[in-house]
Amino acid sequence: MENILEIKDLCKTYDNFELKKVSFNLPKGMIMGFIGENGAGKTTTIKAILNIIQSYRGEIKIFGLDNRKDEKKIKEDIGVVLDDMFFPEILTPNDINSTLKGVYQNWDTKMFYDYLKEFSLLPNKQIKTFSKGMRKKLEIITALSHHPKLLILDEPTSGLDPVARAEVMEIFQNFIEKDDCSILLSSHITTDLEHMADYITFINHGEVILSKTTNELLEQYGIVKCGEEEFQKIDKKDYLKYRKSKYEYEVLVENKKDFKAKYDIAVIDKITLDDLMVLMIKGEE
């Protein structure tokens, strides 16, 4: 399958944080959820993809092209929503339209105004008069209105109430149905991703700890719930992490089926991405 985004051995060092050989691929037409707790390295990775940070090592290819050598060409086909980075708030959607008409070759003014109408955003109002949800919608439709082949979305739903969040996710869903577009969607709100993402890449402390299809992850991984006696019988190599709560052990296993065949433990729950994150980050080995 053709990859729209390929990241290989991406490293970046700060005084108090390091990206350690981050590698993953996003196949064409797929949605990848990029998850991890705050400060795990999601935004740094996205900034490297977009060359907002530059002094990194490793290789990043987008549409098969080098992201530094062919930067201008690549960015014609990328739409971005970045956490807290946008047009100055004294501008209006009309100003955004006239600006981006002169920036993107494929800017679609009609599409932009249709979206504004659909989401009841007034074209001549300053961005600062919009609520947080309205502002986010504006950021998203700005990212969509030049028919990008790749959307890079950094925390597009963070800070939104559930209704606004659902509306925002609906915009993506509709867009994907219309255009053959790939999406890299970073979020720590994992419930948004469970139904939408084809792939999940999980980053922790600057390191990718897994990158799999969502189905594989949700179907294969499981949480074994057992008492201390049963837990002691489990071989260390048969689980990834565990947590001890007041009454039981929660044990993260990579393959429910294999585990069930080996151990006689009745309760193996399906995993959610939230469970996975909590156990991978907070669990013991």
């Binding site: 060359n51 907002i52 960015k75 990328i78 971005v80 970045l82 980075m85 047009f87 100055p88 981006l100």
Partner: peptide
């Protein structure tokens, strides 16, 4: 004075994500 508005909304970083933005 436009630099202050740019700075407040992190326009400079956003502009780099646009074609030839830097």
């Amino acid at each position: 004075s436009t630099f202050s508005y740019d700075n407040y909304n992190k326009w400079d970083a956003y502009s780099i994500s646009l074609p030839d933005g830097r």
